[in-house]
Nucleic acid binder design. Structure first.
Lengths: 139, 139
DNA sequence: GTCCTTGCAAAACGTTTGCAGTTCA
DNA sequence: TGAACTGCAAACGTTTTGCAAGGAC
């Protein structure tokens, strides 16, 4: 599914197709570098010099809500974004903050991640997201 | 290992035992609510009304560096902290931000997390932390 | 024509830093 | 005594918000 198809499929939710959104999503789908909002901003600015960071965040949040992209909370202050919303696994460098992904079953996770990526793995963080029993009753 | 033992064992690294640090660590070890820095601040303030947020962060970062606590990057802006530094699994409510933990092997992860916690699991984020091949060569 | 979206600026937020005074060892 | 720590306040970087102008449908 490419950027145009995704944005068209969002039209019936009252979400408009704009060239800025197209550029943002196309960039996210074309790279596997897990860019920060700032990096996406710089990239889209080359095509739309007047674009604002607010628009980047607006679009990223919209796409995230509709599960077309994934936000990776980073530990340091900024988040990184991944155009591939399936649950795959990420390896982050604690020194340069680069994020690399890999796909596999989950036996001996740290060792496997090290093997597949060449990283020295020190630890990992696994967080499931969902709705807790109390909030399920409220809504 | 309780708060006093941990802080005493850090003395030979030039890290001083202070009552504020004791209160912060004691609170973290006594709860399984994965509090934010702000929540820890409010709690410690009851015992030390003059304590500052800076001291909370100072202490949390120190304990994190020495692997006595775990920081959980949250997706929203703030982090949560866990006094149990072993790699166990966390479930976060996307509505109230509560974090619950569970322990288990990693087969059919989302389903298992749902079973164990009663959450409706929508997705999860797994991030390994380590040093990438390029950074290994630099240092 | 409607209302969603944009760009801009200011604000909010969590976290870090700088410093003078204090406390631990 | 001296280095580490505290509290305070200001600074920082990321993200959100408010609003008037613009653009999609």
């Amino acid at each position: 599914m490419d950027a145009i198809e995704i944005l068209k499929s969002l039209k019936d939710k009252g979400i408009r197709f704009t060239p800025q959104r197209q550029a943002i999503l196309e960039y996210l789908l074309s790279t596997d570098t897990h860019p920060t909002a700032e990096e996406i901003y710089k990239q889209v600015k080359q095509k739309f010099p007047g674009v604002s960071l607010g628009t980047i965040y607006n679009t990223l949040n919209m796409l995230k809500e509709h599960n077309y992209i994934l936000e990776l909370p980073c530990g340091d202050m900024s988040s990184r974004f991944d155009g591939n919303p399936v649950n795959h696994y990420h390896v982050m460098c604690t020194q340069c903050s680069k994020v690399v992904d890999f796909h596999n079953g989950l036996i001996d996770m740290d060792e496997l991640a090290a093997e597949k990526t060449g990283f020295e793995i020190h630890t990992h963080s696994l967080i499931f997201y969902g709705v807790c029993p109390e909030c399920q009753n409220i809504n």
